[in-house]
Amino acid sequence: MKIAFTTKGIDWDSKMDPRFGRTEFILVYDVEKEDFTHVDNRSIADQAHGAGPKTAQLLFDLKPDVLITGNGPGGNAATVLEKANLKIYIGAGDMTVKAAYEAYKNGNLKEG
């Protein structure tokens, strides 16, 4: 199983990025392999409009099973993610990646 996080850094201790569309990084944790990969999304700051669906497309190609983020994606991004067939958990915007993962495992995050 692969879990994607919207983050401000690339390891367990990084802060989560509460924004979906304009998140700085997407961190993907492979639960079986216990392995991290990341995608640098910082160039999204150049997009005047439509950051949400563009980041959603990136996520679509990464094919995670779960997304953990802050506020949750807006309308357009949500439409893309529906196609990606993944579960979305929100409310982790204030946490570190590690804490967000723990909260998810313990069922403490709201489903988006």
Binding site: Q47, H49, G50, A51, P53, K54, Q57, F60, V80, K83, A84
Partner: peptide
């Protein structure tokens, strides 16, 4: 130029 069309799979 507006992210209004996208290839998804």
């Amino acid at each position: 130029n507006f992210n209004a069309i996208m290839k998804l799979g």
